[in-house]
Amino acid sequence: MEFVDLRSDTLTRPDEGMRQAMASAEVGDDVFGEDPTVNLLQEKIAELTGKKAALFVASGTMGNQVSINAHTQPGDEVICEERAHIFNYESGSPAMLSGVQLRPLPGKYGVLNVEEVEEAIRPADHHFPQTRLISLENTHNRWGGTIYPLDEIKKMHKLAKKYKLKMHLDGARLWNASIATGITIKEFSRYFDSVSLCFSKGLGAPVGSVIAGDEDFIERAHRYRKAYGGGMRQAGILAAAAIYAIEHNWQRMADDHRRARTLAEAINEMPGLVVNLQTVQTNIVIVDTSLTGRSSAEIASRLLEEGVKVIAFAPTRLRVVTHLHIDDQAIERAIEAFKNVSKNL
């Protein structure tokens, strides 16, 4: 059986054009700063984000954690949203690698209330960890690919300036936010001291992320990347895939968003299955199964029997993600599978 695999946009694979770009990439030793393709990618990202410099890293987690390390000292505190990737999916790395603690705050659709953030900022007292960094996520994975509104980012930036705090953006899927809103990557990025972007999700590259900031930040980040084992030597083969992905797979994300919306609206009409359509803003659909009385794992298992792969994201929540390998026909098959499952619950 050929499956419709909607588990994640990390499942994307290089197409023939990307493979050719990788095979013909000019390479050198990136640890010495001598890989021309990596350097070209970093220059492109610096220009795209409006930052002075950029650094190619192995993964989104590495990019976020290198950034946290470069902005903080052990014993500091980082404010984030309670469903944030850096809090839930990065192996406790802020504590393990940077010696900092996270202060997770509840948000609505991933958006933090600025007044609540201000209340959480620690006073300058030796009894307390010192608030050093605010980290936002755009789009927000656990909230279903929701977009952090630019006006709210501006408010948070103003608050950070007031208290002399740094701002980091986990922008793994910022590509999606830009396509969905028409707001440039540069405009989203300008309010942050550092930005991470991922190439191996919707863009379809096999490996890699990047961080961007000013020269001093990137200089510090170089050291931490090396300490984490992220010096990848002839990494131009991977950077070539990232460049190809930006040039060929970015604009087509609008199709992923359209298909996610089609799927979400269809599922929301099925008995017992609920999708909050307000959260379906890009390529992720969260399906609430609680009204069925069945666990998400059981429903995921039944969908698998119908030829559709999804993730049981929580005890009563499924995550469904569209990507460049999912066409209109695949969406039709997925809708039919959900119908078959829902009517037999």
Rank of each mutant, 00 (worst) to 15 (best):
Ala242Ser: 15
Ile243Pro: 01
Tyr244Asn: 06
Tyr244Ala: 07
Ala245Tyr: 08
Glu247Ile: 00
Trp250Ser: 11
Gln251Pro: 00
Arg252Leu: 11
Met253Asp: 06
Asp255Cys: 05
Asp255Tyr: 12
Arg259Ala: 06
Arg259Ser: 01
Ala260Gln: 11
Arg261Tyr: 02
Thr262Lys: 15
Thr262Asp: 11
Glu265Thr: 09
Ala266Gln: 01
Ala266Leu: 01
Ala266Phe: 03
Ile267Gly: 00
Asn268Trp: 04
Glu269Arg: 14
Pro271Lys: 04
Pro271Leu: 06
Leu273Met: 13
Leu273Gln: 06
Val274Ser: 05
Val275Ala: 01
Val280Asp: 03
Gln281Gly: 08
Gln281Cys: 08
Asn283Ser: 15
Asn283Gly: 08
Ile284His: 04
Val287Asn: 00
Val287Tyr: 00
Asp288Ala: 15
Thr289Pro: 00
Thr289Val: 01
Thr289Tyr: 01
Leu291Asp: 14
Thr292Ala: 08
Thr292Gln: 05
Gly293Asp: 09
Arg294Ile: 02
Arg294Asp: 09
Ala297Met: 12
Glu298Arg: 09
Ala300Trp: 00
Ser301Cys: 11
Arg302Ser: 14
Leu303Ile: 14
Glu305Phe: 08
Glu306Met: 14
Glu306Pro: 09
Val310Lys: 05
Val310Trp: 11
Val310Ile: 15
Ala312Lys: 01
Phe313Val: 02
Phe313Glu: 15
Phe313Ser: 10
